[in-house]
Computed example of a mutant assay.
Amino acid sequence: MGGYMEFLYQLESIRNPFLSGIFRLFTLLGQEVVVLAVLCFFYWCYNKKLAYRISFGFFLSAILVQGLKITFRIPRPWIKDPLFKPVEDAINAATGYSFPSGHTQAATALYGTLALATKKRASKIMLFLVIAMVGLSRMYLGVHTPADVLTSFVITLATILLVYYFSNFELTKDKKVYLMIGIGVFAIALLIYCVTLYTNGTIELAYAADSCSAAAAGVGLAIGWYVESTYLNFNERACSNRMQVVKLLIGLTVTILLKEGLGFILGASITGKGVKYFLLVLWIMIGYPCIIKRFMNKA
């Protein structure tokens, strides 16, 4: 930890308003809301197959990262070393334990999957540079150590590589059922684990709620993917270009309102946050596609 903190102190020594502004922008690229917005664009409007790859990589790696967070329970750098000062306005978004980095996980899942999908070398390099800058931004802002960032990157990269490999196989209906159950069991295992740690007093409510959110979203993904790919099969590109823009704007607006509304109604409890993310993922995966298929693909 000492070596890691020395590196963070070196980054702290070069902070200035210009660099801080640049790294704030990069850290936004790893925010949950950005990942969800890009995912919705691909899923609803552009490339459903690629959206599934992003979804599986993002949610499966999130379950792994959240599991490691509540297992190791490593505090943030400024808690570990009270003399260290992070960038103040970065603290609010730094929820949960420090190890591994959630922003790095999200950025690697999204931009790493896009990098694997593109055939252009320049695009691959640019996308992996974005991942590197998101990880560096978390250290520059003082909310993560190199161990947090590198561990998250390796775990998520391995996850998206596995997803990319297995996505090339055709799945029968029976195999889809097995995959849905497998992902659901994986997510529920995290749910049981985090509830157990919370009830025995090992972790606090906020940390348990974050893990529960990831687990519930994973269950929502498994069910949503199975239902859509087996029964719904909406056409994401059937609309006119103008309707595509309208479709995306309506969908994102309702998604944001749903996210905020469910948060207000259900609260910040373990159950509340779990139900919120479960319903939110089902809306993205099944609810809005049903509306698209019924009303918008004819426009």
Results as ranks from 00 to 15, higher is better:
1 M>P: 11
3 G>E: 07
5 M>V: 12
5 M>Y: 02
5 M>E: 14
7 F>M: 13
8 L>Q: 00
11 L>Q: 00
14 I>C: 10
16 N>R: 03
16 N>D: 12
20 S>K: 11
21 G>L: 07
23 F>R: 00
25 L>G: 14
28 L>V: 05
34 V>M: 10
36 L>P: 00
36 L>D: 01
38 V>I: 15
38 V>Q: 02
43 Y>N: 10
49 K>V: 03
50 L>S: 01
51 A>S: 13
52 Y>M: 06
54 I>Q: 01
57 G>N: 03
62 A>Q: 09
64 L>W: 07
69 K>Y: 07
70 I>D: 05
70 I>S: 00
75 P>D: 13
76 R>N: 04
76 R>Q: 09
76 R>D: 03
84 F>L: 06
86 P>K: 05
93 A>M: 12
94 A>E: 08
94 A>M: 04
94 A>S: 05
97 Y>I: 01
98 S>K: 06
100 P>C: 10
105 Q>L: 10
105 Q>C: 08
106 A>C: 09
112 G>N: 04
112 G>F: 12
117 A>F: 09
118 T>G: 14
124 K>G: 03
127 L>E: 01
127 L>I: 11
128 F>L: 14
129 L>S: 15
130 V>M: 02
130 V>H: 00
133 M>P: 02
134 V>T: 08
135 G>Q: 04
135 G>N: 06
138 R>Y: 03
144 H>W: 04
149 V>W: 07
149 V>M: 10
150 L>T: 10
152 S>L: 07
153 F>N: 03
154 V>G: 04
156 T>M: 02
156 T>A: 07
158 A>G: 03
159 T>P: 00
161 L>H: 05
166 F>H: 04
172 T>C: 12
181 I>F: 12
182 G>H: 13
182 G>K: 11
188 I>W: 09
194 C>T: 15
198 Y>I: 13
198 Y>L: 11
199 T>C: 10
203 I>L: 05
204 E>H: 12
206 A>D: 14
207 Y>W: 08
208 A>E: 00
211 S>D: 04
211 S>E: 04
214 A>S: 15
221 L>H: 09
224 G>R: 01
225 W>F: 15
227 V>M: 08
228 E>F: 09
229 S>L: 14
230 T>Q: 11
230 T>V: 15
231 Y>Q: 03
231 Y>S: 08
232 L>N: 07
233 N>Q: 15
235 N>M: 05
235 N>Q: 14
235 N>G: 08
240 S>H: 12
241 N>K: 15
242 R>D: 13
248 L>Q: 02
249 L>P: 08
250 I>P: 06
254 V>T: 09
256 I>K: 08
257 L>E: 10
258 L>M: 13
259 K>Y: 15
261 G>N: 04
263 G>H: 06
264 F>G: 00
266 L>N: 01
267 G>W: 12
269 S>Y: 07
270 I>E: 01
271 T>W: 15
273 K>C: 10
274 G>R: 03
276 K>Q: 14
276 K>F: 02
280 L>E: 07
281 V>M: 10
282 L>M: 09
283 W>D: 05
285 M>N: 04
286 I>D: 08
290 C>I: 14
290 C>D: 03
291 I>F: 15
292 I>S: 09
294 R>C: 13
296 M>P: 00
298 K>F: 13
299 A>V: 14
299 A>C: 13
